[in-house]
Write a protein that binds this DNA or RNA. Structure first.
Lengths: 170, 170
DNA sequence: TATTGTTATACTCTATAACTATA
DNA sequence: TATAGTTATAGAGTATAACAATA
């Protein structure tokens, strides 16, 4: 797993190769995850962005959180977010601002430049993933989407989250 | 994509919630990749390993490469590998040794401690991925494996690689 | 007293450039 | 001269601990 692409089982050398082999679901999922992660990493790098910087900008597309909220969403210590936002601010991608509600808090927002950059990177990444799915006919892409959605919904439910909110809440 | 779990489309608020929604194949793949990557990161961290250290140890399970080969496989500069192997060696996980063929070269091998550590981390990670697949009945896990294998085989073929070698070679 | 954010410090990971030893 | 590896240096990303300002 992790680094090697070969299946674990060693076939009997006396037999002719079996007609078609398949990855285990576990191996397939693991390998595909690394592949997709690498695609994002490469596209982000084209815009001089790390994965973390990309996540930061992606989060800010929807909200204007405090430093503290950002730390929670990113799963980082607040001191790490200070540095992260410092570097993005130096590049003019985000801006800090005061909070009307709490004079201790600092709000972080995307600048126009940051919004343009994350939009470009996201578009390219989505093209990559779409290209990855290209070999499958549409019916099988739908089937894949159905299976992946079920996995993600189940996982979200285990964590008490709803993957599809907005069903009748303010 | 990237950071947010919500689908892009906003439903009509006058309609009752549609019966079942689904992620696009692109979103499903992207989200699942981050999920699986995070699982590996957490399991590795339990053993005080970074993803990079884990990759290093995983590669060494199968081979005893030179520093140079390691740099190529990991996609890193050789100077980065020097530091990586330094830190692993300090922890007693790998050992450097001379090459009989080339007195400039340095061979890197897993120690027993390193082998035990990577085996433990890999086992836990595979349990995690298996648990992720648990919500699907066996027939759908098989279908998922079939679809993922086709994607990975197609991608490997584009790069001139065979995902399933060993068909009639020493 | 508790919370928000920054600073100081330290370690990992990564790269570029310069260097040593061998081929 | 070219290649294998290390060292020096620099910067991103991360965390812990101590601090200032505000609640």
């Amino acid at each position: 797993m992790v680094a090697s692409a070969s299946p674990a089982s060693s076939p009997d050398p006396r037999e002719p190769p079996p007609p078609a082999r398949e990855l285990s679901p576990v191996d397939g999922l693991a390998q595909l995850s690394f592949l997709v992660h690498g695609l994002l990493e490469r596209r982000a790098a084209e815009h001089e962005l790390s994965i973390t910087q990309t996540r930061l900008l992606a989060i800010l597309r929807d909200r204007t959180p405090t430093m503290n909220e950002l730390a929670r969403v990113l799963g980082l210590d607040k001191s790490s977010v200070t540095g992260l936002v410092d570097r993005a601010e130096r590049r003019g991608l985000v801006a800090r601002g005061p909070s009307a509600a709490d004079r201790r808090a600092v709000l972080v927002a995307l600048t126009d430049a940051g919004r343009a950059l994350v939009a470009a990177a996201a578009a390219r990444f989505e093209e990559d993933v779409a290209a990855l799915l290209d070999p499958l006919p549409a019916s099988e892409r739908d089937e894949l989407a159905r299976l992946l959605t079920r996995l993600l919904v189940a996982r979200a439910a285990e964590q008490g989250l709803d993957l599809f909110p907005s069903s009748g809440r303010p």
